[in-house]
């Protein structure tokens, strides 16, 4: 009983996160200005990271966890570089 409850909750959570990723992609493609697109990208990778964590809970393997950590690291560096680019027009000064 509780197993089906947990499995159902995980499935529902993944669907919710999928919709959330869709919203972020929409803002990324639509966003009137460049900074809106970058915020969309930022939200997209955070949602993707949460999705991977839930995959990890479902399968019980820690491999997904490592992938989530890598996404968090690279997403941070990418967003910071893009913000820097918007501010100055170049990444490396």
């Amino acid at each position: 009983m509780t197993t089906t409850l947990l499995a159902g909750a995980l499935l529902l959570a993944q669907m919710l996160l999928g919709i959330a990723m869709g919203c972020a992609v929409f803002r990324m493609l639509r966003g009137p200005r460049a900074q809106d697109r970058v915020v969309g990208l930022d939200t997209l990778y955070v949602n993707g990271m949460l999705m991977l964590l839930i995959f990890g809970i479902r399968t019980g393997s820690t491999l997904y966890f490592e992938a989530a950590l890598v996404i968090a690291l690279l997403g941070f560096v990418g967003t910071a570089a893009l913000a820097k680019f918007l501010m100055r027009g170049e990444v490396i000064e």
């Binding site: 947990l6 919710l16 919203c23 803002r27 939200t43």
Partner: peptide
């Protein structure tokens, strides 16, 4: 998942749903 005892499954299910809904609300806010 079948090996997860009930005391862990119920709070985990609630927390996962709450987290996913918050992320969805944030993205809808976007």
């Amino acid at each position: 998942l079948e090996n997860v005892p009930a005391w862990a499954a119920v709070p985990a299910a609630i927390l996962v749903l709450a987290g996913a809904s918050l992320a969805l609300i944030g993205s809808v806010g976007l």
